[in-house]
Simulated scan of single mutants.
Amino acid sequence: MATPLEDIIAKAIKDADKSFFNEDYTKQARSVMNALKKAGYEVAPVRPPEGLVEWAKENIPFGRLRPAELITQMYSMMVENVRRFDK
C-alpha cells in the first residue's frame, strides 16, 4: 500500500526545518514538493495551462493503442509536462 499523502507531507515538513522559531516556510514547501515528486506525485493545476492541450494533441502517441493505454499515456505525458506551460 502506498504511503498516504498526508504522511509524506508531514515527514517532509518535519525533516526540512528543525527550528522552533522563524521557520523557513519556503524550505518546508520545497521539501514537500521534492518528497511528493520522489513518491511519484506531481502537483498540477485542475485545468491544463494554456498551450498544454495543443502540445499534447501534437504529441499523441502513434500506433494502435487500446483506449485505456492511450488515456494512460496521454495522462502521464500531460502531467509530466505541465510545468512547461504553467507560467
Rank of each mutant, 00 (worst) to 15 (best):
M1G: 13
M1Q: 07
A2K: 04
T3V: 14
P4N: 06
P4V: 02
E6L: 14
D7F: 02
I9D: 00
A10K: 06
A10M: 06
A10N: 12
A10Q: 10
K11M: 09
A12G: 06
I13Q: 06
I13T: 05
I13V: 14
I13P: 01
I13D: 01
K14S: 14
D15Q: 07
D15T: 07
D15W: 07
A16G: 01
A16L: 08
A16Y: 07
D17Q: 07
D17L: 08
D17V: 08
K18Q: 13
K18A: 15
S19I: 01
S19K: 14
F20D: 02
F20I: 10
F20R: 11
F21C: 04
N22Y: 10
E23K: 15
D24C: 04
D24R: 05
Y25G: 05
Y25L: 11
Y25T: 02
Y25S: 04
T26R: 08
T26V: 12
K27A: 04
K27W: 06
Q28D: 01
Q28H: 05
A29L: 09
R30I: 04
R30C: 00
S31I: 01
S31K: 02
V32E: 00
V32S: 01
V32T: 02
M33P: 00
M33L: 08
M33C: 01
N34T: 11
N34V: 03
K37G: 09
K37A: 13
A39K: 00
A39I: 03
G40F: 03
G40A: 09
Y41I: 05
Y41E: 09
Y41R: 07
Y41T: 02
Y41H: 12
E42R: 15
E42P: 00
V43D: 04
V43H: 06
V43G: 00
V46Y: 08
V46D: 05
R47Y: 04
P48V: 11
P48Q: 05
P48S: 08
P49I: 15
P49F: 13
E50G: 10
E50M: 12
G51D: 03
G51P: 05
G51A: 14
L52Q: 01
L52F: 10
L52W: 03
V53C: 07
V53K: 06
E54M: 13
E54R: 08
E54D: 13
E54C: 03
E54N: 11
W55K: 06
W55G: 05
W55Q: 03
A56G: 06
A56K: 04
E58V: 08
N59K: 13
N59M: 12
N59L: 11
I60V: 15
P61I: 14
P61Y: 08
F62M: 11
F62L: 14
F62V: 14
F62C: 13
G63I: 05
L65R: 05
L65V: 04
L65W: 03
L65M: 14
R66S: 08
A68L: 06
A68K: 12
L70W: 01
L70A: 04
I71G: 01
I71P: 01
T72A: 15
T72P: 00
T72E: 15
T72Q: 15
Q73F: 02
M74H: 02
Y75A: 05
Y75N: 09
S76N: 14
S76Q: 14
S76M: 09
M77D: 01
M77K: 06
M78P: 00
V79N: 08
E80F: 10
E80H: 11
V82S: 13
R84T: 10
R84M: 15
R84I: 10
F85C: 12
D86L: 12
D86W: 15
D86N: 14
D86A: 14
